[in-house]
Computed example of a mutant assay.
Amino acid sequence: MGIKERRDVEKEEMKKRIMDAAIEVIVQEGYEKLSIRKIAAQIEYSPTTIYLYYKDKAEIITDMSDVLYRKVMGEVVAVINEEAALPIDKQVHDILRGFIKGLCSEPEMVKAIMHSGINVVFANDSTDGKPANQGIDMLDHLVSIGISQKVFRPGIENNSWMIVSALLGFVLSSIGSRLYLFDNFHKHIDDFVEILMGGIKQ
Rank of each mutant, 00 (worst) to 15 (best):
T127W: 02
T127C: 04
T127H: 08
T127Y: 00
D128H: 04
D128F: 01
G129W: 02
G129N: 04
K130N: 15
K130V: 04
K130P: 02
K130Q: 10
K130Y: 04
K130G: 00
K130I: 03
P131M: 08
P131E: 09
P131G: 08
A132V: 11
A132R: 13
N133H: 14
N133V: 02
N133W: 00
N133L: 04
N133Y: 08
N133F: 02
N133S: 02
Q134L: 06
Q134M: 03
Q134P: 01
Q134N: 09
Q134W: 05
G135P: 12
G135T: 13
G135H: 04
D137Y: 11
D137A: 15
M138H: 03
M138R: 00
L139G: 12
L139R: 01
L139P: 13
L139S: 05
D140S: 05
D140R: 00
D140Q: 02
H141I: 01
H141T: 14
H141V: 09
L142N: 08
L142M: 13
L142V: 10
V143A: 04
V143C: 08
V143Y: 03
S144W: 07
S144P: 00
I145C: 03
I145E: 06
G146Q: 13
G146D: 08
I147E: 13
S148F: 08
S148P: 01
Q149S: 10
K150S: 15
K150Y: 07
K150H: 15
V151M: 02
F152S: 06
F152R: 05
R153K: 15
R153L: 12
R153T: 10
P154H: 11
P154S: 13
P154G: 13
P154E: 14
P154C: 10
G155H: 06
G155L: 09
I156F: 01
I156V: 06
I156G: 07
E157I: 03
E157D: 12
E157Q: 15
E157V: 11
N158L: 10
N158V: 03
N159I: 04
N159W: 00
N159E: 11
N159Q: 15
N159H: 12
S160K: 07
S160Y: 09
M162V: 15
M162E: 14
M162C: 14
I163T: 13
I163S: 11
I163H: 05
V164L: 10
V164H: 12
V164Q: 14
V164P: 03
S165C: 06
S165E: 02
S165Y: 01
A166R: 00
A166K: 01
A166W: 00
A166N: 13
